[in-house]
Design a protein around this nucleic acid. Sequence first.
RNA 1: GUGGGAUUAGUUCAGUUGGUUAGAGCGCUAGUUUGUGGCACUAGAAAUCAUGGGUUCGAAUCCCAUAUCCCACCCCA
Length: 418
Amino acid sequence: MRYAAQKGTKDILPQDIYRWHKAERTFADVCHSYGYEEIRIPTFEQTDLFQRGVGDTTDVVQKEMYTFDDKGGRSVTLRPEGTAGVCRSFIENGMTSLPSPVRMFYNITAFRYENVQKGRMREFHQFGLEAFGSEGPEIDAEIISLLTVFFEKMGVKHTKLCINSIGCPTCRAQYNAILKDYFRPHMDELCDDCKARFDKNPLRMIDCKVEGCKKYAADAPRLIDYLCEDCNNHFETLKKELENLGIEYTIDPGIVRGLDYYTRTVFEFVSENVGTQGTICGGGRYDGLIESLGGSKVPGIGFAMGAERFLMECEAQEIAFDKPDHVKVYFADLCPEAKPVISKACLDLRKAGIGCERDLTGRSFKAQMKYANKAGIPYLIVIGEDEISNGKVNVKNMADGSSEEILINGITDYFGNK
RNA sequence: GUGGGAUUAGUUCAGUUGGUUAGAGCGCUAGUUUGUGGCACUAGAAAUCAUGGGUUCGAAUCCCAUAUCCCACCCCA
């Protein structure tokens, strides 16, 4: 074992890829049905984009980024998430002039230098989307409903949905003052992180998991009770719309989201099946992000789903994924003269889009049979001297052993109609 | 960054108080007299026992360090 996959990275093997294809296709189909088109963005961006976009007080930026200087001396970073890159592209490509809302989905790998554990890797996959130019809250509800439809199409019971509103800069400024007043008398008892958060981002203090802080955090004034009128109306309408769509939710004032760009609506789908990393999918609104990245004042909303976590949830729920038979028929040869007949037949079948295989290792006839069986190929055609001389072959159904006689010239038609 | 557990064929695991050429199941390759797979039987290939040091006459086994994997804290998807 000389080389091994890098810490926190994983091979997705051919034997498992059908599960990914199913999830990827289903996600794309559902996104399409909501008017989203796929965008593909680069794997790395200039470091500054993430510092500004994700926020340089966040853990993601402070300690988890894969950052390096390229040979031209530019500081570049492997994307730790998708939103910043999509926003950059939105601005750079003048998408403000496109009819609103501009809706895009993506399927990306993302990179975070973290300690690995269940449901957390250094290179991981995200299915996500972003919508620009609509303040919501109808679109907020629509995006959440998109996820429930995705879960449904995958046959997954959708996991617990938590929502919250973290307000706009106006109400947050007021709330931060209130929060600081609340925590100030207890400063000495708080953890170092919280002491730092007190000045930089007091909102995160109620999210703290340290025991000493938790007891104060539990009784802390909740932002949701101090929303300005606009934000409050926004949140109320969102809730009504979710109820209208029959989507169950819990309000969790604790959801803050560790990325700085979020405003107003934040939500997550949480499961107990993916370790302590319960969040399968998280997202929210970011009305100030485009502007802070140098674009015009355009509101946005999006989410990202941890693909590995989602597939873990599927496994926990014992979701059946059907494995497609890419290869329909195996040709076994009984004599050297059969080989050219078989290669020609294979070529015809493949041109017609029908998968087939034949021996490529010089195996004995019996070994070819065993191979076809082990490979799970549903049909078998044996070609020997008899078949060549009378132009007919038997198509054997490997599952039940039955067989049917057809003309060699008719093989492509036969399988084309299957 | 901090803890706990683990690491022996492709894979899942045995391996006694340290004692000769490190074993098995599954998988893989081939065969069981050559025109039909699954079952069974036989044979074969495959292991620098994670890596590097140390203790010892002798280490897969004991000690130290490092790496990786799993789990947790933190944070997130």
